[in-house]
Design a protein around this nucleic acid. Structure first.
Lengths: 210, 210, 210, 210
DNA sequence: TATGAATGAGTATTCATTCAT
DNA sequence: TATGAATGAATACTCATTCAT
């Protein structure tokens, strides 16, 4: 049972929620991990039953923790966004300020390509997941990366956060669904990064074409 | 009950299929059109019943023409790809060779953003749609556009078809799911186009940022 | 399969509904009859599955005809009310005008006592069945009976329709739940009828006590 | 968390039960009170969880005291019957012997109409509640009232206890489900009371019609 | 060939009851 | 003894697919 377990800080309850009993908390984690795995593999239309089976609990337990399938999807989404935000924050305090944004985008695309992440799938189902808060946190993190990159002169000043997120979304979705291999990822990202750079910085580190 | 029927060439059967009676053919068209409309609006999880109702035929008729829901989705996909290929071919013989690729990408993204097109949704369902032939035709069309643009000097020589298609896919998916508005589309595409241009053509027509 | 089949006129569609195919209509009747039997025996919390099994059809067929359990209950209710209204109307044109109301009440109570009728059960579940129209028809029928009885001098002039219906409801519920035997029914009704008679008519035909 | 506890005599265990610890007894009372309130409001299909929550105890505690939902319903029923018996006994020693039965019936109907009492709901569930002993006590109390009324000359000699209880049951059920307003209650009861009176006492105090 | 009724496996969700903490 | 997490059977409802009319 060595599924990718969500980092503790990501799944920590919002303050104010009464702490769960040890076994309950353990099950919650297992369910979340199972759900992430199952939905990642089969898409969000996978049955809750399957999630329960994968987690090794009864179906009732899943619904005790997440009273709706929606709620379960939301929880995964929040978890994921929290981990991304965390990663963004780490990058933001790293040394190479100019490359931070490029690195982050690259990592996200890599992840998306690897596993059929939930991120993308969520949107598709038309389910409105109301994870606005978590999204906002991530936006802020990305904005910080963008600003730093612009100050470092590796991204044009006239680029807005919206475009960056649009590109990020599109690239992830593309990578996710079309199953780009590493090489294709690299070359595709290189093109986009080239488009983000100021004229005087073109042909930079990320821009090596075969 | 005369719904807007797809153009005949778009729905043409692959050669080798036995010709249908006139009324059967008419029904086939109506079902396809209905399916495209319904799936475009509600996603591929819309029920076949709804498609039948929208087409004004009984459910049995739908399954007579397309023995599986899968088959119906496939047919739509092929239809769509055929129309895109058609559009590509038209663009390829236009006068402005340098802008043809950019124009095509822009149009596709616009369409994807406008209607919840099937394109994107198909991939998501994880269904393997086996439309390889149709895709190949489109690939070839796009390749022609790419070559012409490169010859015209508006796209870098070191760009491959794979990256172009990867970008196209990602941008469409992004536009589709994230609901970009026209302005955001324009700015996002401008960045990508900038990345596609050779150094000496940078800051070209498509690259005006707010 | 000789369950009490609803009379044709009771189940006839409101005009304007497209006529069903013969087999569909037959199934509809069977489902209704089965539902009436099952709910009558086990109360409205009986499962729809059981109704389907009892009717010898698949569960989907039940839901095709009655898209909701509610709808099924409603249909039974309407059916029942229609039959009651019918009975009321017959009584209203009978010869013995003075006894018509008493006869009707007696019959209803008898029926309620016999089978765990749906009437009573419906109210209990807290389900709002929206059969107002059908109820109104029955009210009008009962009102006619009441008026005739009053004109015949067997019911006091100062009795209103509301009280009659209240008594009818209470007596049916009581008979239904408490399982009164025939003799107890008779004696209980005799008391109520006695209360309905004018002073000068007391000790009338219905009022023989042990 | 001091909810309105039922009076001690009402909840007294049948003799022979081993005495509970003080806190356990307190919990028992709270659960009973909560159950009565919850079931009164939502009907007997309300969940045991809700009862537990309302009582401020854990679900396990409820099942410790009442090993089955059935048992809980039974206990409420007994409690209720005990209170009614108590009320009957009080009335039986009151001064106005002739009106005692009428008063009792009136009160019961009033209560039934006011709150979605459990009384009525119990019968509906089809659950056999085995509260024969408690019922017997109540029967005896009512019989006493009946006898006194007959001796006082306000109720006919040929009326039996069974009919009185039948009427009582029916009227309560009717009032409960049909939601009679006070005025309708009054007029309906007046009719029944009139039916109970001997000829020479007709048009008595309770018999004023609009 | 078209129709549309019937099928029945599948899905989310609830809830009485059990049992480890 | 109290807690409350876990259980899992049950239930209403959906929908792709089949087949008699």
């Amino acid at each position: 049972m060595t599924s990718p377990k969500p980092s503790p800080e990501a799944t920590s309850d919002p303050t104010g929620t009464k702490p769960l009993r040890a076994d309950a908390r353990r099950n919650r984690e297992r369910i979340l991990a199972a759900a992430e795995a199952v939905f990642a593999e089969k898409g969000p239309s996978a049955s809750t039953d399957e999630v329960a089976a994968h987690a090794g609990v009864a179906i009732g337990t899943v619904f005790k923790h997440f009273p709706t399938k929606q709620a379960l999807l939301q929880a995964i989404m929040k978890d994921l966004l929290a981990r991304l935000t965390q990663e963004v924050d780490t990058l933001a305090t790293d040394d190479a300020p100019g490359e931070a944004l490029f690195t982050f985008i690259t990592r996200m695309v890599e992840q998306a390509a690897q596993k059929r992440t939930v991120v993308g799938l969520l949107a598709e189902t038309g389910i409105d997941l109301q994870v606005a808060d978590s999204v906002q946190l991530l936006r802020e993190g990305i904005e910080a990366l963008l600003t730093r990159s612009q100050q470092a002169g590796t991204v044009r000043e006239d680029i807005h956060l919206d475009e960056v997120i649009a590109l990020l979304t599109g690239l992830c979705q593309g990578a996710l669904h079309a199953g780009w291999d590493r090489d294709l990822q690299r070359r595709t990202l290189a093109i986009v990064f080239e488009g983000l750079r100021p004229f005087e910085a073109r042909g930079g580190a990320a821009g090596t074409y075969s």
